[in-house]
Each structure stands twice: as structure tokens, then as C-alpha cells.
Computed example of a mutant assay.
Amino acid sequence: MSNQTALLRPATIGSKSFSNRLVLAPMSRTSAEPDGTPTAEMASYYAGFARGGFGLLIAEGAFVDANYSQCYGNQPGLVTDSHEAGWRTVVEAVKRENGKIILQLIHAGAVSQFVERAFAPSPVRPMGEMLQGYGPRQGPYDTPGELSVNDIRAICSAFVDAAKRAEAAGFDGVEIHCANGYLLDQFLTPETNLRNDTYGGTLEDRLRLTTDILSMCQQKTSPDFLVGVRLSQAKATVQDYFWPNGLEDARVIFSAVAEAGANFIHLASDKGGYTYHSTAKTGENLTAFARSLTGLQVIANGGLQDIGLANQVIADQLADFVSIGKAAMLNPDLPKKIASGAPLRDFTFEMFKYGVSVNAQLKWEAEQRA
């Protein structure tokens, strides 16, 4: 099977059909208005990936409430009518290019670099320091306050309300962000969830908020609207983290999100890429395990701009789709390049010379052409 054949053949998730197995991974570009409203620049940015042939776009994480969920300055939200109207413009631009797009929904929890005081499952200070370039706050994280049960229920409702707004804006679905050390992953992780109520203790209870969100989003949106989940072992603050009990933790996590109604599982892999962090610490391949255990469509992630590896992942039925992030920024037409055999531009962190926003990239690109 050639590189083209596996990656470029069509596929489905639920009732949605996709032209190929190549997914744009969600990447925070901090390009919204200060109040979180998506911009015309963002509409053009996402339309470019649809025009470039990606079968599915996952738009960057949108914060879900105006209290504590925002991660960064100029992050898009989906809380107000203005936010919804801005995202509708993005979706319409993508649809004009015959693209499919879903929206990631996120709550920062303890790792917010925006709110004055963060709140989390437990008052555990995150390791490491805030991400450079994402402001407005920088330096070490503070110790967060502890969420009350009423706070947690309000967060669940905020995710559901955002999912309903996403459907109204025309998205094909949402991805619930339970990965990379953000709030829902903080609940999942024993080191950051020290609670002794129904949202802490056993892994099943630590997953309760995520599974409640998934099931309620399914109940409150139409049957054709996709509701998926992003998971990871590694965290932005703990790059070499693995689920403590290996495959047994994976069994509980994958089973729980499937039972809650997730349409797909997107397993993010950070340090070391797919071959490292989509493997349990006991050695088992986790995307293949998720597929066989749940029967859900699985999106693999991590260094999969290596087209030979990406093709192998699909051809060997280790996953159903592959998502590509940083490499896509410099290759918005990556699927068309794969189809034609054209070389890819190599990703370089130099592209963030002027910042991580779309406008900063355009400035750098113009400088390269000069």
C-alpha cells in the first residue's frame, strides 16, 4: 500500500463522511479579539486548511465560561452571542471550501495564564512555568483554589452550553479537551486530584466530570452532531507523564468515555511523538487498544508529519485518522502535497519569532519571501 492509498482514502465518524484520514490538530494561535470573539483573519486561516485538502479540521480550544476557564490572552471563546457569530463566520469560510470542522472546548483550570486566580480540583500548584508567548501572565504557576461541587456542576453546564452554541454556529461537532494537563485532565490525574467526594478517589470518579460532560453534550445536541474527546498521558507541565497503571488505566478511561457516548477518541502524544506517548508504560500500543476495546474511531497524534509512519499507523489499523499540528502550520496544503508527492516544508520554531498568533506567522512568512 502506498503512502497515498492509506492516508487519502475516505472514512467516517458516526454519520459524518470525510474525504481522507488527515486531520488538522487543534493549535492555540491566540488570534481572537481581546473579548474572545473569532476574527476574519481566523476564518481565512482555517479556510486555508480546508482548501489544502484536510479531511477534518479541529479548531483550537475555545473557553467555555467567562469566570475561570480562559487559558491565554486573545484565546477564542464560545460563551456569548458575539463569540458564536464569530465562529459562524469561521465555519462558513471552511464550508465554502467543502471542509468539515469541529471545535475543541477547553477549561484551563490550574494552568490558566489569564485569570487572576485559577481554580482546580484540588489546591495543587502545577509544576514548571507558564508557556512562553501565550501570556498575559508568565512565570511560575500559583496554587489554585479548590472547586466546590456547585462550581463543578456549573462547569459541566458551561461545556454543554458551548456545545449547543457550536452546533448553532454550524460546526460538525465538538472535541472535549481532557488532555495535556488542562482542567479535565487535572481531575483525571491522581497527583492533581486529591478530592474525597464523588469527583475524586477512584479513576472512575476522577473521570466523572468528563463523562458527565460527554453524555450531557450528546443529550443536548442532535444525533448527527459529533461529540469526541481528546486524551493524553503527557501534560504541558509534566512532559514525561504516563498513566500510572498502564494498560489497566487505559482500559478504564477508554471504556468510560465510550460508555458516556463519545463518537471518537483523539489521543495526543507530546514528548517523543506517537511511538513514545501513544504507548503505555508497559509497552502496549494505546490507539490500537482503544480501537479494539471500544469500536470507536481513533485519531492518532504526534510527529505524524512523518508520512511513512502516518501511513503505517493507518495501514496497520492502529488508528483511523492521524492529526498533524506544527507541520500543518507551514503546510496548509499538506494532503495535496502527499497526493502529488511534493516535499513538505520543514517546521521551524523560528516561525514564532514575532509570536504565536496567525498575524505573527504572516509577518514572519512575509520576511522570508523578502
Rank of each mutant, 00 (worst) to 15 (best):
G77A: 05
L330F: 02
V257D: 08
F54N: 03
Q70R: 15
E97H: 08
N74Y: 14
A360Q: 08
A179L: 11
S112T: 14
Y134W: 07
S15K: 09
A47F: 03
S31D: 09
L214T: 09
T221W: 04
P343F: 03
G145E: 12
L226K: 05
G302S: 11
M42E: 14
P144W: 01
V356E: 05
K336T: 02
S31C: 04
K337W: 12
D346R: 15
Q4H: 04
S112H: 01
N74G: 05
A163L: 13
D240P: 00
G173T: 09
F347Y: 09
S28I: 02
Q312L: 10
Q104A: 12
G133C: 13
V298R: 12
F321A: 05
K220M: 07
F349V: 02
E175V: 00
N301Q: 08
A162V: 02
E259A: 11
Q219N: 05
G228N: 04
A120L: 07
I176S: 09
D346C: 02
A168E: 10
Q305V: 01
G355P: 10
V257F: 11
A236S: 09
Y46F: 15
P332Y: 12
Y45F: 15
C71Q: 12
Q239G: 04
R165G: 10
N3H: 06
G303T: 09
A319W: 07
P343T: 06
T30Q: 15
P26Q: 07
N331F: 09
P126I: 02
A258E: 09
E33W: 01
Q368W: 06
S278A: 14
W87T: 03
L194R: 14
G200T: 03
D249M: 13
I265K: 10
G295P: 06
R29H: 11
D316M: 03
G325Q: 07
Y68S: 13
L8W: 01
S215C: 05
W364Q: 05
Q70P: 01
P34Q: 04
M216L: 14
V298P: 11
E129P: 03
D65T: 01
F54H: 10
G283I: 04
G48I: 03
R369W: 01
A162T: 01
E248T: 10
G302E: 12
Q70D: 00
D249N: 11
V115P: 01
H266R: 06
G133K: 08
G355A: 13
A310Q: 10
P121I: 03
Q305S: 14
V149D: 15
T89H: 10
S292F: 03
S269L: 04
W243Y: 15
P332G: 12
F264T: 00
G14R: 08
L8E: 06
V64T: 14
P190L: 01
R96M: 10
H83V: 06
P26Y: 11
V94D: 07
P144F: 07
D270I: 02
Y182V: 05
Q138S: 13
T12N: 14
P136N: 08
Y46V: 14
N331Y: 08
G36Q: 05
